[in-house]
């Protein structure tokens, strides 16, 4: 595991944001990851604007779970998009699958194709656009969620980890 915020190297397809084991650092459930995610991408904070998802452990507080896009190597979201390479694209150098909102028609096919439950793609019912983690590919400082985690419990995976079980 690494906490390196540097830009992704070429062809490291499959790298994604991970949550450290609680033996290393316990997530405090502050929602900073969700908040800064939506702020840097959308300029506002809100549940439908985030690309990272904190499942709160309401009472015991010990098992807050952070759910992220796994950047699957077979990218079913990309494959499902009727406007692939326009609305949903793959960055050539890094392999990051990202959404180009200007061309997103809000059909939710990418959302439905996401193999995880809960889904790792968000859908904004106001703008009718899908929202997906792009690993802050255009952000010089790297992934905002990792940078702003006050207890450093987020990191970028070392290499492709494949899908979660």
């Amino acid at each position: 595991m690494t906490n390196n915020n540097s830009n992704l190297g070429p062809k490291e397809l499959g790298r994604h944001v991970i949550q450290h084991a609680k033996e290393y650092s316990v997530c405090v459930g502050c929602n900073a990851c969700e908040i800064v995610c939506s702020l840097v991408h959308e300029g506002a904070a809100g549940q439908m604007l985030r690309r990272i998802f904190l499942e709160r452990d309401t009472i015991n507080l010990e098992d807050h779970t952070i759910l992220t896009c796994q950047h699957c190597q077979d990218h079913p979201c990309y494959e499902a998009c009727p406007k692939k390479d326009q609305a949903i694209c793959i960055e050539a150098d890094s392999g990051i699958v990202y959404i180009n909102e200007a061309d997103c028609i809000g059909c939710k096919k990418c959302y439905k194709a996401c193999p995880y439950e809960p889904k790792r793609i968000n859908y904004d019912t106001v703008s009718k656009k899908a929202k997906k983690c792009d690993l802050c590919r255009n952000r010089e400082a790297g992934q905002a969620c990792i940078e702003y985690c006050q207890v450093q419990c987020l990191a970028l995976s070392e290499a492709d980890l494949g899908r979660e079980n």
């Binding site: 300029g43 439908m48 985690c149 006050q150």
Partner: peptide, 28 residues
């Protein structure tokens, strides 16, 4: 499921780093 827009996003991000001088250390 809606959203709230602060007037100055950059200031909000700055505050998250500086207000109360958070440690940004692990929480074992």
């Amino acid at each position: 499921t809606g959203s709230i827009k602060p007037a100055d996003v950059n200031k909000v991000l700055e505050l998250r780093k500086t207000m109360g001088t958070p440690g940004f250390n692990t929480n074992p």
